[in-house]
Simulated assay, not measured.
Amino acid sequence: MTRDVKEIFAGERGGPSGAGGTPPAPAALAAKVRTLGPSMTRSMQRVAEAVAGDPAGCAALTVTGLAELTGTSEATVVRTARLLGYPGYRDLRLALAGLAAHQQSGRAPAITTDIAVDDPIADVVAKLAYDEQQTLADTAAGLDTVQLGAAVTALTTARRTDVYGVGASGLVAQDLTQKLLRIGLIAHAHSDPHLAVTNAVQLRAGDVAVAVTHSGSTGDVIEPLRVAFERGATTVAITGRPNGPVTQYADHVLTTSTARESELRPAAMSSRTGQLLVVDCLFVGVAQRTYEKAAPALSASYEALAHRHRS
């Protein structure tokens, strides 16, 4: 029996998946498709697009039927199911049925259209607000809380934290750094690739390095993370591509939603929303763990700012 055929039979039985963890809830399925779709092969994308576009119809199909519908193989269907977090195709069918029920009840919103050049400003506000809400919901649904908890633990006990990001991700890196500084932790944000690498060389075990890159392939961010990883620091990647190059040097991967990109809303805008949610989750988690020190530090920073405004 070939490996592909073994995968098909295991998938139909719902046997061992290799994916690990608990399968995502039906409501999270669409978010997983949007997040993982860009990193899939074209044949797997056809399967993912089919199940996201017609969950009710696909839920009624066997693995063979879905393969025929999408012009792929049964093995591709099973691989797609597993990449989406389901032990086998049977589990994916159950999730599709649940998602279809959500949509029929009106609890699953329809996908909004892109912003047009001639859209009234009120429509622009409504569409952006919907997209921002969807990005936050998708990021929350796909965020691995085990990985998040491990990253929080590392930041809490770190001697020093370096955060790398360029462009819009650089702004997110600065946001995380400023938050950590306000609760008394030592943190530095680096957007200059040369400074990032020269600082990464100084890291060691007990330090933390965080890379923020939506694409997961930004060389100016990957290189200092690689150096930090090789120096023994704990490394964290905040990325929209869970299989991107940056993850090979990350001890912990925190995935953000791959928001829809349009001509008037580039990825730099849409990705930032999910990244900031992850940053806020990290910060609150660290503040909870260090509350006795964090609370007085926050109060002191508030008082310092208030005094400056009164002066």
Rank of each mutant, 00 (worst) to 15 (best):
A60Q: 15
T290C: 13
L83Q: 12
K6V: 09
E261L: 01
R308A: 14
H252P: 05
R79E: 14
R42D: 15
R107D: 14
L128P: 00
L148D: 08
Y89M: 00
P266M: 11
R34W: 03
P24T: 09
H102K: 06
G285M: 08
K293M: 06
L277E: 13
V47Y: 05
G98C: 12
D4R: 11
A294K: 09
S270Q: 07
A100C: 01
V279P: 12
P266Q: 09
A19S: 14
T35Q: 08
H309L: 13
F9G: 00
E261K: 07
T41C: 01
P55H: 01
L276N: 13
A97D: 14
N199L: 07
G170S: 03
G219T: 02
I115A: 14
P224C: 08
P120T: 10
V221N: 04
R159P: 00
V47S: 10
D131I: 01
Q174D: 15
A19D: 09
D220P: 05
K32T: 02
P16D: 15
V77H: 03
Q275D: 07
P23D: 00
A30S: 12
L203C: 02
L92Q: 00
P87E: 08
G18V: 07
V279T: 11
A50W: 09
G240M: 12
T2A: 05
A173N: 14
T256H: 02
T70G: 06
E223R: 13
V125I: 15
R82S: 02
D192T: 04
V166P: 00
A294G: 12
V152H: 06
A300V: 07
D175E: 11
S311M: 00
